[in-house]
């Protein structure tokens, strides 16, 4: 980073701090009822209190766990199914249109069906999260497989590679930018669905925490939970960008 960039960064942080100060001022002057809007000082105190008593840690761990399991299951299944469909032109003509038809369906609408089948359980949450997160990954994989440079397939044919070898040696690496982009989209979906499932099923996690805090009108705890959820979204998406950068370094070097 050069000097100008650092100065801009600092200025940008100062502006953000200014907004927090305005928030504090509004809270101090009680322009908005403190029942709804705690000052940043109270939200911060609630955050620290939650962490030191261990409550928030366990809630955060619960949410991360739901998110991670659902997302990983969706990633594995999505890439596998996407690879099966994407590597066969017959599957593409028969199956892909049905998937395109299902794509705009708001995935949360599957929640009542999952509740009817599995009850208000951990398994229901995992099913819903995985079901929601699988779409971007699966469709990205199919798209990535379809967009592989045709000459590479010709090479594979002349080398008489098996279908599995074609998938692992040619199609998957060449589709990896699409797949990783899909996995990144799914991360957001997984976080949102984790929160919704925790709210609905009362599972241990930040979603349940913010709802309970709201019910009890403990607005400072509520804001602490929301801030933590924002942080979770931010950290996971930064981590995903770093992983993407790492994993695709070989492609950037090629161009």
């Amino acid at each position: 980073m050069n000097r100008a960039a650092i100065i801009w960064r600092v200025a940008s942080f100062a502006v953000a701090a200014g907004f927090v100060a305005i928030w504090q001022l509004i809270a101090n002057l009680k322009l908005v009822s403190p029942v709804f809007l705690p000052g940043p000082d109270r939200a911060w105190a609630a955050l620290m209190r939650g962490f030191s008593s261990g409550d928030l840690w366990s809630k955060l761990a619960g949410t991360l766990e739901h998110m991670a399991y659902g997302w990983l299951a969706a990633s594995i299944a999505g890439i596998a199914i996407g690879a099966i469909i994407g590597s066969s032109s017959r599957m593409r003509t028969y199956v892909a249109p049905s998937l395109e038809f299902l794509r705009p369906l708001p995935v949360s609408a599957i929640i009542p069906v999952a509740i009817a089948m599995l009850g208000l359980t951990q398994a229901m949450a995992l099913f819903v999260i995985a079901f929601g997160a699988i779409w971007p990954i699966m469709l990205a994989t199919i798209h990535g497989f379809a967009a592989v440079e045709p000459r590479l397939y010709e090479v594979a044919r002349s080398l008489q590679m098996s279908r599995l070898a074609v998938i692992f040696k040619i199609a998957l690496p060449s589709a990896s930018p699409d797949i990783l982009a899909g996995m990144r989209l799914s991360l957001t979906v997984a976080l949102i669905l984790s929160v919704v499932c925790e709210i609905l099923a009362g599972l241990d996690g930040l979603g349940h925490w913010v709802l309970l805090s709201a019910r009890a009108f403990r607005s400072a705890d509520l804001f602490a939970g929301v801030i933590l959820l924002g942080l979770t979204g931010y950290v996971t998406s930064v981590a995903m960008s770093l992983a993407e950068h790492r994993l695709l370094a070989w492609q950037a070097a090629q161009r």
Partner: peptide
């Protein structure tokens, strides 16, 4: 996440 604003 937008849904986190729900309780607020």
């Amino acid at each position: 996440p937008s849904i986190a604003l729900l309780p607020i």
